[in-house]
Design a protein around this nucleic acid. Structure first.
Lengths: 206, 206, 206, 206
DNA sequence: ATCTAATCGAGACGGTACGTCAGGTCTTCGC
DNA sequence: GCGAAGACCTGACGTACCGTCTCGATTAGAT
């Protein structure tokens, strides 16, 4: 029954004692995303978002302290579903699939572009850096760690594995290519990362 | 060789037919560096540099297209000597020392801060990204590769080693911590990177 | 007659099915007056009145089209009693007392300050000008004219006297000083106006 | 030949160490005048002036503290030549002509409209009031007084005449009609003011 | 010894975006 | 149905920098 666009509309309102306009919120987030995609980070301005979203500047300032906050929310919204590793029951397969997806996310997707922009901006803004870490990165790292934790549970990895360091070794080179060298991140590269990791850590007679 | 450094000279001049004012150049570079250190990237403005350097805006625009070019030059200047790995004759030792220095450079030094700021800005500006790669990163990677190349020459590493990928595995996680997670990069972390690399690649009997 | 002044009641209500809140009305008028006195005309804003009166903006807009309407009502209320000339039975005495009071009203009193502000605003707003004339000025001029009409009735002034023009000559210079030159309007000045008028018009050989 | 668009032009410049752009100054003053005439005082905004004059807002703020300053300068410029009474050698004639012109200026002319707007604004802004008096009104009153001073010199008026008060009696009623009642100011009205003045003051047995 | 050309500090210029403030409209809910 | 609350769009405010420009002074090489 929700928002059924039939005749009278009705969810449409402007100004309301109880709660903000969801309509305006969505319009702002979309406008920010679109502007980033079309014109780059410098092209994302409060003025521009407002104009494109058909929203008053004041409405943006009421709910978001700055344009990076808008992008941050847009980003968080966008990537809820992304990048949760599957459970194939095999450590190597899990990691290979997940790292390949991560590489694809960072280099190809729209939310990946937002991530790069925000990470770039975070180099100039420690507060944003902290927020990125707290609101997003920590969750992502928890998801990234899932295959490792499952393997530990299965006995495929030693119980005392330093998971944090292991993750840095696995995803660090990917981020480095994306953020620093700009080199592509092909499947061979991610597979090789997994191979290196398995060589070193997998409990193994062989 | 023109306008050559004939003995004394002496550089102090305002207006000059041939050649620019070295005095003004230095003042600009220092002002930009200082502003970055004191007020962050957003605090570096052409107007601010000009005021602080006691120089006309036009003088800056005459020699540098944008503020990132000023920072880039300041940066290049500053880090000529840094980060050239020593030759201790031993691959493990060479790498451990070099990665530790790299980590220290990125996290502690002033030019490291400039690097982080420029890399951040490069996420919004593909042209800057390309310039960073061409003017700086390629040289740095050549330096980073020296220990590996020497080890190959000595026969301590296989001749067909993929040096680029190896470098990514070694320095990627360090950059990832610096640019993304903000985690510290202690000596144990860099030593462990080296250990993982040696485990995998060192020609080894056992 | 509903909700009428029956014994206690007592007027205090927030939200009410029958009729508006006298409490809110008074609070608005006072807030507007106070703001004008304290911060000048520019300091009188709908937002400010609402905040100070503890009233919603909408409540103001429901009853007054604009802030000048609020001031106008406050003004009308304040000056009902003021400036009705006494009847001393003597034209000269009546005029001298009345003009002195008028001068004092315009230069010293709070409602006089409101009058100056509204007249100032009326220069930018023809609708306000018309309303000021219709709602206030015409009544005031009728009162101003009383001494003259009584003198005509007594035969102390010619029956064909152009009362409008005479009034302009009497009160015009006072308003001019108040609104334009900012010069003080002492008793000698107003008495001299009366003297000039009597010289010219009073029937009389002697 | 002026402004002839021929090739180089040359008086045209934008930005200059020595002195401001006369071109911009004129454009601003004209734009302000035009806006006042077309849309009233409320229609005169810094933004609007800038847009209409094809000038940056900052350029206006650089030279004028507020929009009333712009209008004040436009006004001063416009009325340099206006309202200097002629010398016909006869007090009555001089005054009649001058007051008629004054009335016409105030009610009909563009600079008269600016004067009314500024005087209106001065009711809300004591600083503007002071500036209006110092920069403009004092000079105008000196001009207004000329016929009286000439008549005194000729012996047509007593040497001890209180010129200030006399001026207030003469021009006060005109301003009162213009600013307060909004009544027209026909020739009969101004002539009558002169007649009243002459009746009272002109040396004369007869 | 003059002339010429390049550079310098200075700063005004047309602009874009900033973040804030008030205006006037609309919607909800309690009384 | 009134009143408090407050979100909303609109539009102007005054400021900070942008990148371009024009000036007068300074200086070194060319004539």
């Amino acid at each position: 029954m929700e928002s059924s666009t039939t005749h009278s509309d009705n969810t449409r309102h402007r100004g309301n004692r109880h709660g903000r306009s969801e309509e305006a919120r969505q319009a702002v987030l979309e406008a920010a995303d679109d502007l980033l995609a079309e014109r780059g980070f410098a092209g994302v301005t409060m003025e521009g978002i407002a104009a494109r979203a058909g929203v008053a500047k004041q409405t943006i300032y009421r709910w978001w302290p700055s344009k990076v906050d808008v992008l941050l929310e847009a980003f968080t919204e966008d990537m809820a579903e992304h990048l949760t590793p599957e459970d194939l029951g095999d450590l190597g397969a899990d990691l290979r699939v997940h790292l390949a997806r991560l590489a694809d996310f960072l280099t190809e997707s729209d939310p990946g572009a937002v991530f790069r922009a925000l990470t770039g901006q975070a180099q100039h803004d420690p507060q944003l850096a902290a927020r990125l870490r707290d609101d997003h990165l920590s969750h992502q790292r928890t998801r990234d760690a899932l295959p490792l934790r499952r393997a530990i549970a299965r006995g495929d990895l030693p119980a005392d594995l330093d998971v944090d360091t292991a993750l840095d070794h696995l995803v660090g080179p990917i981020h480095y290519r994306v953020l620093v060298t700009g080199a592509p991140v092909p499947r061979e590269f991610t597979d090789d990362l997994v191979a290196a990791f398995l060589d070193r850590h997998r409990a193994g007679p062989r």
